[in-house]
Write a protein that binds this DNA or RNA. Structure first.
Lengths: 150, 150
DNA sequence: CATCATGTAATTATAAAAGTTACATGAAAA
DNA sequence: TTTTCATGTAACTTTTATAATTACATGATG
């Protein structure tokens, strides 16, 4: 199965937008992400509808963050993408007439629901501000590798 | 993304084999599963290597369970399938040079690892015997719907 | 009003599972 | 021992999802 990497990509874009006052064009973001501007517009659409980002047309247009990084969780971003499937495995048939298959589906559904709920809850606790802090830490570590003096 | 339903399908097949002494052919199992015999052989291969089932060629050949249903967990079956991806979402790049993307990947990886571990642990607690019991319960309920007298 | 940037529909490329075909291997029956 | 049956696999096709691309409409700015 092909894994959906839109969440990862969208987070990447959002962090690159952080701190910038001027709008960033889809063209620029696409270069950072090594993809196509249309892909950027597509994955940003949900965030715009939810008011997390704003977009402007024409000269000086582009994308800007519309709220604080601390106010967006990874779950928000996931929802903005239309809440795509989190689990890669599923049932063969949605409403099987076979009782054996019904039992299998019921058992799997319970576990999968639990795992999804747990993952969603976890995503809800991580804000973009936390990711940004993590990024800053990495930047400091790279600039001043372990063992070196401040 | 297309969801992997091999686990569900394999469990279905195994439960249909339960209790049968004589070998069941891939042909028969494929009819039950409404699929192709080759698909059956493919998903059963891992279980055979691990000794959970045996297969025989020629006349009177086919598949038989090689152990008690209580001794196979859903996790065993998942492993027999080659431990396919459980999560449908992943990273864009495996080893990104961009520090921002590294931070994103690290944050996601933590949560995903946790969710996967939790799901695997859960699968490890469910045996085929439990699924079989669930099936039997459903059978009894269908034969004697709620409200009817024993 | 020309240019720039988004908005979106339509099309093509890509990747993984599922399904199919073809044939080799080996066991049991005739 | 030869025929038949069933597995074991490799190779190929189909299916279905995301991702990438193309094309063009919309609207803002200089």
């Amino acid at each position: 199965m092909k894994r959906d990497s839109r969440l990862s990509g969208l987070l990447h874009v959002l962090l690159h937008m952080a701190g910038r006052e001027e709008p960033v064009t889809s063209e620029t973001l696409a270069r950072i992400m090594q993809t196509n501007p249309v892909v950027i517009r597509r994955i940003m659409a949900g965030l715009r509808e939810r008011g997390h980002v704003r977009s402007g047309k024409g000269h000086g247009g582009g994308w800007v963050l519309a709220c604080d990084l601390a106010d967006i969780t990874l779950r928000d971003v996931h929802e903005a993408l239309g809440e795509p499937q989190l689990l890669a495995i599923g049932h063969r048939t949605e409403a099987p007439s076979c009782l054996v298959e019904q039992a299998v589906n019921a058992a799997l559904a319970d576990s999968f629901r639990e795992a999804e709920a747990m993952l969603l809850a976890r995503l809800g606790t991580i804000t973009l501000a936390m990711l940004h802090a993590d990024f800053s830490t990495r930047l400091a570590l790279r600039a001043r590798p372990e063992g070196s003096c401040p």
